[in-house]
Design a protein around this nucleic acid. Structure first.
Lengths: 175, 175
DNA sequence: ATGGATGCAAAGCGTTTGCATACAG
DNA sequence: CTGTATGCAAACGCTTTGCATCCAT
C-alpha cells in the first residue's frame, strides 16, 4: 500500500521498545497524509490500546457506540474508517478470520508472533518462533519476492479441547 | 492468472498418489453422510478439477450458471452449498482472501505449499518449503497443540511489480 | 416411495459510502 | 475560513436460507 511511513526495522525479530504512544504514532501518520487527529480517532486508539487483546470491528463499535463517560461515543462508520487507517499506519493488523469477521491485534510495540486456532473452541493462541521469519526471508529472496510481512494460522485442536473427558472450552461450537 | 506451480513433488510431505478421482472421492465422502452425488455436484467437481488454478465461488458460478452443452447449469446456491461440502470432504481448501472473496485451491492430490501475495497486483504465487511444516510440527508439539494444517500468506511485492519501470501487472484481472 | 437436493428469490451480515453537518488546523 | 471528518442511513457484495419442487437411491 503506502510507499512511505513505517520505519520498521527490516528485521523485527527484535522490536525496539516503544518510545511513542500509539496515539502519538497515529498523529504522526495522519500528519503525513494531511489528515487530522480528531477526538473520535483518539478515542478509538485509546480503546484499542487499553489492553493487548485481539478484537474485531464490532467489539470496538459496541464499546464506543453507546455514550461513554470519558471518551464520548463514536459511530460505526467512523470506527470502520479509523480501523482501516490504523492498519495503514502500522498500528494494528489483521491476524485471522473468525466467524466471518477480521480479527485484529496490535502491530505496534508488540513482538512478532503467529497463532494457533482451535477448530473446537475457535480460540486464538499466540506463539513465537523466529525460525519461521528466517525461513520466509530466505525463501522470499529466492523467489525475488519483497516480503513485507506474513499471516500464519496454524489450525488444529488445542490442548484443552484435546483432553478426552472432562470439561472443554465452550466458545462457539455448533452442534 | 498464471500461478507458478512446481511439479517438483517428491518429498515426504508429498501426497500419496491419487488413486481415486475427485468425483469418486467426493462420492465416498457423501456416502458417509447419507448425502447424494447429484448431477449438479458432479458437474461442479469436474469443473473445479478441470485444471489446477485457484478459484473463487463466483468464478465457478459464472461458468456453470449459464447453460452448458455437457454439464448442464447449476444454480448459485448449489455452487456455494457444494463448495462447502467439498471443503469438508478435504477436496479443496481456502488459501487466502482476495478482494473480499475466499480463494480456493485443490487440496486433494496436490502437494503442500504456501503463497506469496503481491500487494500491488494481488496475484498469488505458490512456493514450496518443507522446513515450515517441520518447524510448525515441532512448535505445535511444544504447545500441546494438535496441528491439522496451516494457512500461510506471505505479503509483499512480487518480482514483476518491484521492477521500477515498464508496465506492471494489472490489478484486477478477471477472466 | 421419500428424504435429501435444487432453484429462486429474499434475507443476512459485515463493511462501505453518499450527503449534509460539524470541526481541526 | 477551508478542507476534513463525522453520523446516519442507505447501499453493497458475498454468502446463506426458506420453501416449493425435483430426483437419487
Amino acid at each position: 500500500m503506502g510507499p512511505i511511513v513505517n520505519e520498521t526495522a527490516t528485521n523485527e525479530l527484535a522490536r525496539q521498545e516503544v518510545t511513542v504512544s500509539p496515539v502519538e504514532k497515529f498523529r504522526e501518520f495522519l500528519a503525513t497524509r494531511r489528515m487530522r487527529l480528531t477526538q473520535e480517532r483518539e478515542t478509538i486508539v485509546r480503546e484499542i490500546f487499553a489492553d493487548h487483546e485481539h478484537f474485531d470491528s464490532d467489539q470496538i463499535v459496541s464499546r464506543l457506540t453507546q455514550p461513554r463517560r470519558d471518551g464520548g461515543r463514536v459511530s460505526r462508520a467512523t470506527v470502520y474508517r479509523t480501523l482501516r487507517e490504523l492498519e495503514k499506519a502500522g498500528l494494528i493488523r489483521k491476524v485471522a478470520r473468525s466467524n466471518d469477521r477480521e480479527v485484529y491485534e496490535h502491530d505496534y510495540g508488540y513482538p512478532q508472533h503467529d497463532h494457533f486456532i482451535c477448530e473446537k473452541c475457535s480460540q486464538l493462541v499466540e506463539f513465537r518462533n523466529d525460525e519461521i521469519s528466517t525461513v520466509l526471508e530466505r525463501v522470499s529472496a529466492e523467489y525475488g519476492f519483497r516480503m513485507k510481512g506474513h499471516r500464519l494460522e496454524v489450525h488444529g485442536i488445542c490442548d484443552a479441547c484435546a483432553r478426552p473427558p472432562a470439561r472443554r472450552h465452550r466458545k462457539l461450537d455448533m452442534i
